[in-house]
Design a protein around this nucleic acid. Structure first.
Lengths: 329, 329
DNA sequence: CTGTTAGCGCGTTCAC
DNA sequence: GTGAACGCGCTAACAG
């Protein structure tokens, strides 16, 4: 029953008739120390008999490592990208013996409470997930500056500041749209419009737009950009649309429905990201899938290297893939 | 610049010309110790000057409290309920000075790796989120038994085992469907069907069904249950449908579209839960909203009381609310 | 009443 | 293979 009592290294030492340090050596498989196989066995047996689990806090204090990484997200918690990232982060962290702690940021928009997580030794490093830039609600450079000053190892996910001394794992916005446009080009379309808000204040939006432009230019095709608000007017003239995101894709499908345009027969549509609802649209929206889970894994790998003092700043942007459904085959 | 060096309680003591213990007394506002306001000020000033942040690991070890709660989720990470819960958990935990750690469960379906989080003092208690029961992929009673044996304070979220010695924060499945059906009844509908898989092995499904039955019985109306697979055949006869979940709601809308049935004019639909895609269906699906964020807050409150040794086992099921969109006003 | 000394909690690691 | 210092903060017991 409620066994409660946790056993310590001392208990194991006593049980195995050895000194505390031997237990430590055996359990940590210290390379420099050679322990008699026989003693080793005694210790291992004692440990398992007592269901010994090392006190993480204590060992962390000694080695000055908490074996925990912090995740601070300005990205919406719902939404497929965050949850996918989280899965990747969890898997990779667990595989490396690290735990994952969610860092809160205090309600104030400008608060950096998460920095204390490092100062108080609760985390060894931080994975910082920037919001969709289209929201433009944080000063990323400022966060970077403060993290630098506090000395915390960190990796930016979905970052936009192009700081050469910082590690980034980014979404390949350019490629996501390039891929979508290329697919339509490959299907023989000559007139492919790009539907997206034409606000170019954020890198996310400019990168995506550029992806469209590059694809069209390489194919020698004319560009045509459409703002979601104007869809009702120009949709009848179009045969193929790349939407910057699934919400725009949704707007396109809505407009098509109202106008009586059949999708995909009269109009093909691809959106450059996947949301949890993409598959539920009517008809199910073809998309480009952002490899967020893989991004999470990569970010952890990079962060652990930085924590170890190895690894130099680098930028990685894993490639997207097509996820075709009904609105475009 | 990279200031790195973290200051310790010793540094503060030296800076303020007092002993270590005084610093501790001041910073922890120890009731039993009265410190001269003047000394107090000196300490406070020194601490803020040095940007002192207590070493969480060290203090935790001494007080035998990590000030961290663990979250282990068998619920899908995507999906609105989990992310909503997470938000509530984070807010409430932060407000009480607690941190949140995500506990992994090792890939093996039957692994209880998360128990080590408590044994190694990484967490003071656990919030256990059960999966949709319809998935039926864990042995909840077994998890409860093991958590009990390990002595970890815990609260079950969305639990189904009806153990009187355990604290639960549950989804009010019964009320969610009851509410949806009552709304349709209030609108004057006489024939209201219930669309759901008719598998009754899981409490989630039976509770929902019972909610429908109770609402109908109280209004003296006849029951009519429909399996999602049979929708195409019987939908033309129906004027109002309660769907157990949004995915069934989606199936109803799909069938209606294929059959040329206008929603909501010829057919009204409400689903008894909200998913991130509910609003994106065509037309946007009216739903019942599960107060998952509130559930997260409540669960943390209850868990903290249990950690403190106060608080007795209790079951709480916060009430759902209507979230009307287009498929039913 | 204010402040100090000393030991503790638990595991790591160096010197013997 | 052992002993003991150490990391950092908390707090009981003690001194001024």
């Amino acid at each position: 029953m409620a066994q409660g009592k946790k056993s310590t290294i001392k208990d194991v030492a006593r049980e195995a008739n050895v000194s505390i340090s031997v237990v430590s050596y055996v359990l940590n498989a210290s390379a420099k120390k050679s322990i008699t196989p026989e003693t080793r066995e005694r210790v291992l047996a004692a440990a398992s008999r007592l269901k010994y689990v090392p006190n993480h806090a204590a060992s962390g204090m000694r080695r000055n490592r908490s074996m925990v990484i912090g995740v601070v997200s300005y990205w919406e918690l719902d939404g497929m990208v965050f949850t996918d990232m989280l899965r990747g982060i969890m898997r990779e962290a667990a595989g490396s013996g690290y735990r994952v702690m969610l860092c809160h940021k205090d309600s104030q928009a400008d608060d950096k409470a998460y920095l204390d997580y490092y100062k108080e030794r609760s985390v060894d490093g931080i994975l910082f997930i920037s919001p969709h830039e289209s929201l433009g609600l944080i000063d990323e450079a400022d966060h970077i500056r403060l993290m630098r000053e506090s000395g915390v190892p960190f990796v930016m996910m979905n970052g936009s500041t192009n700081d050469p001394d910082v590690s980034y794992v980014n979404v390949d916005y350019h490629a996501s749209v390039y891929l979508a446009a290329s697919h339509l080009i490959g299907k023989g379309h000559k007139e492919i419009a790009y539907a997206a808000p034409m606000n170019l204040r954020y890198r996310e939006l400019t990168s995506r737009l550029q992806g469209y432009r590059d694809a069209m230019a390489e194919a020698g095709l004319p560009e045509r950009c459409v703002d979601p608000a104007e869809l009702r007017d120009c949709l009848p003239e179009l045969r193929a649309v790349v939407a910057n995101k699934s919400d725009t894709g949704h707007a396109v499908l809505e407009a098509a429905r109202v106008l009586g345009i059949a999708v995909p027969d009269q109009l093909e549509v691809i959106a450059a990201n996947t949301e949890s609802y993409s598959a539920y649209l009517c008809p199910p929206l073809s998309t480009v899938r952002i490899p967020a889970e893989r991004m999470g894994e990569m970010a952890v790998e990079m962060l652990l290297r930085r924590i170890d003092g190895q690894g130099v700043p680098e930028v990685r942007t894993p490639t997207c893939t097509l996820e075709l459904r009904q609105t475009c085959r």
